[in-house]
């Protein structure tokens, strides 16, 4: 009997020794290269400026904007509610709490979309989910949302809908597109009349 136990112990010790000398795996969460390429080739990470503007105006609580430009540029101008994580700091452990979340959709943006996309790829390799990139970045934001161009007369009606949305959005975000047309109707007398209660309330229940 005791021989079997000795044998068992030896096997267990051998197994432990093998485990000790196994090559160290760096990061278990790291995405497979093949999967990473598939993610890179998938363009669903790009969100249009119109979509993001819509969600910001609606005060969608499930969206968080992350500005990946240097702190100086962020200090000068940033989209409303955006936090700043410069590209060089994207991989810091401290920022994982912001970038790797299940409850929020993180939208990365920069002046164009190159830095944001680079940050996205670095994060994708780490297996972060729910990350998006603002297509065209701030440059396109200012071209499309802040200074919308009116569609040509023959355009389909969707173009006009989009144009009127962008006009309203530019107002909302502090741009100055066609202010004159919108301030004309602002001299209304608003009289708020509250309905009077005529009888004594008898209380709930």
């Amino acid at each position: 009997m005791s021989r079997t136990y000795i044998l068992l112990t030896i096997v267990a010790i051998l197994g432990a020794a093998v485990l000790v000398f196994l090559p160290e795996k760096k990061n278990q969460k790291e995405l497979d290269p093949e999967k990473l390429l598939m993610e890179i080739n998938n363009s669903s990470r790009y969100l249009s400026t119109d979509l993001v503007a819509h969600r910001l105006i609606e005060k969608d609580p499930s969206i968080l904007l992350v500005d990946v430009r240097p702190a100086a540029q962020y200090g000068e101008y940033a989209l409303p509610g955006a936090i700043n994580i410069p590209l060089e700091q994207v991989l810091l452990i401290d920022n994982e709490g912001y970038l790797n979340r299940n409850d929020l959709e993180i939208v990365l943006y920069s002046n164009g979309d190159l830095w944001a996309d680079q940050a996205w790829i670095l994060c994708a390799r780490r297996g972060y989910k729910n990350l998006y990139v603002l297509k065209g970045g701030l440059n396109h934001w200012f071209e499309s949302i802040m200074q919308p161009k009116s569609p040509s007369p023959g355009s389909p009606s969707q173009d006009f809908d989009m144009y009127s949305f962008r006009l309203a959005a530019s107002q909302y975000f502090g741009g100055g597109a066609n202010i004159e047309t919108n301030t004309e109707n602002s001299t209304e007398n608003v009289i708020i009349k509250r309905r009077e209660k005529k009888s004594v309330t008898a209380g709930g229940c």
Partner: peptide, 28 residues
């Protein structure tokens, strides 16, 4: 692509000051 096409903060400052002007002029 990462070069800003304009000075964003200046653009916002200008348009908001225009906004305020036009608002004070027209809105009773």
């Amino acid at each position: 692509v990462e070069e800003p096409v304009m000075n964003f903060s200046e653009f916002i400052d200008q348009s908001t000051s225009e906004n305020i002007k036009s608002v004070t002029e027209q809105v009773k």
